[in-house]
Amino acid sequence: MEATERNKEFLCISTILSCLLLSITYVASLYIWNSPHTREHPSTIKRRFFSVFIMTLISPIFLYYGMNNNVFEKASIWELLGLRWSGLFQATVLPLFLTMVLFLGPLCMQALNGIWRLYAEPMYWLGSARTLIWWRNQVVAPLSEEWTFRACMLPLLLQCFSPTTAIFICPLFFGVAHFHHVVERTKMGMKLKHAIILSSFQFAYTTLFGAYAAFLFAKTGHFMAPFAAHSFCNHMGFPDLSEVIAYKDPVKRAGLLCLFVIGLVAWCFLLTPLTNPTWFNNNLFWHKDFL
């Protein structure tokens, strides 16, 4: 019995260290290039695209060698990574719909400002798809981050922790990884104090989103679920209440604020029923005895 406990303790320590090393490796891959340009410069973006492509190949190695062999008796490496056909459609549509409910206020504000008419223009999407920044924000960053920090990291943590605990530990690595923006902001001329404050705020909301993304991955067992939610959130950005408060019409202002609240409340009520594992044929992650 003591030997079993020691083995479990050793496995958990090695799991945390593996996740930490994976997080450091991901961030280090972005800075391996010696470039005088900012993160928005095309050459920087292209180099980082190459870095995260290499990371998508490296990250599963941490998962494969970090998992207990007992797990591979229940599931293949592809299933652990959330790459399977069964339940894929539901795992794409339902989490995206759920995330849109959370953004009910911002979406209605966009409709009021006429932005939705822009979405109906094919040239808007063609123009966006021609820019490297759009590909970074909507495809490459969500794909590489969810692949590394959810698909390759969360199954490791589920070896040692309950699903609820694991989904709150996993985003800490994701949130801390975003502190590398302090370097970029100071390089662009921002004062260190302001860069730290801004990055701390970013740490807070990326950690919250990371917990939500980890929850979606664990409940659906699909990589596509957090990826779709992440891409949508990157498109919407952080909700800007100051824009709502700036409305001069008190009726519009009050109505939009109500929609922000309604979206949050509706999201809370729909979160559990719309992520029921049976909807996604997920019989792997959302169980106490994962091992």
Rank of each mutant, 00 (worst) to 15 (best):
M1S: 11
E2F: 08
E2P: 15
E9Q: 13
E9N: 10
L11Q: 10
I13H: 09
S14M: 02
S14I: 00
T15W: 11
I16N: 00
S18Y: 00
S18Q: 02
L21H: 04
L21R: 01
S23N: 05
I24F: 12
T25Q: 14
Y26F: 15
A28F: 15
I32H: 06
I32S: 15
H37Q: 13
E40A: 05
H41P: 12
K46M: 12
F50Q: 10
S51T: 07
T56M: 13
T56V: 11
I58A: 08
I61W: 11
Y64K: 14
G66R: 10
F72Q: 01
E73T: 13
E73P: 02
I77F: 13
I77W: 13
W78K: 00
L94S: 05
L98W: 09
F103G: 03
G105A: 05
P106Y: 08
M109C: 02
Y124M: 14
L126Q: 09
T131H: 11
I133N: 00
W134H: 10
N137C: 05
P142I: 01
L143F: 11
E146Y: 06
F149W: 08
M153V: 04
L157I: 07
F161V: 02
T164D: 13
A166V: 00
I167Q: 09
I169Y: 06
P171I: 15
V176W: 01
A177N: 09
T186S: 06
K193A: 15
K193H: 12
Y205I: 15
L208I: 15
A213D: 06
A218L: 05
G221W: 07
H222S: 10
F223I: 05
F223G: 09
M224G: 02
P226K: 03
S231H: 03
F232C: 06
F232D: 05
H235P: 02
G237R: 04
P239E: 04
S242W: 11
V244E: 06
V251P: 01
R253S: 14
G255A: 09
W267R: 02
C268Y: 12
L271W: 07
N276M: 09
T278G: 02
W279K: 10
N281Q: 11
N283F: 05
N283M: 08
W286M: 03
H287W: 00
K288C: 04
F290A: 05
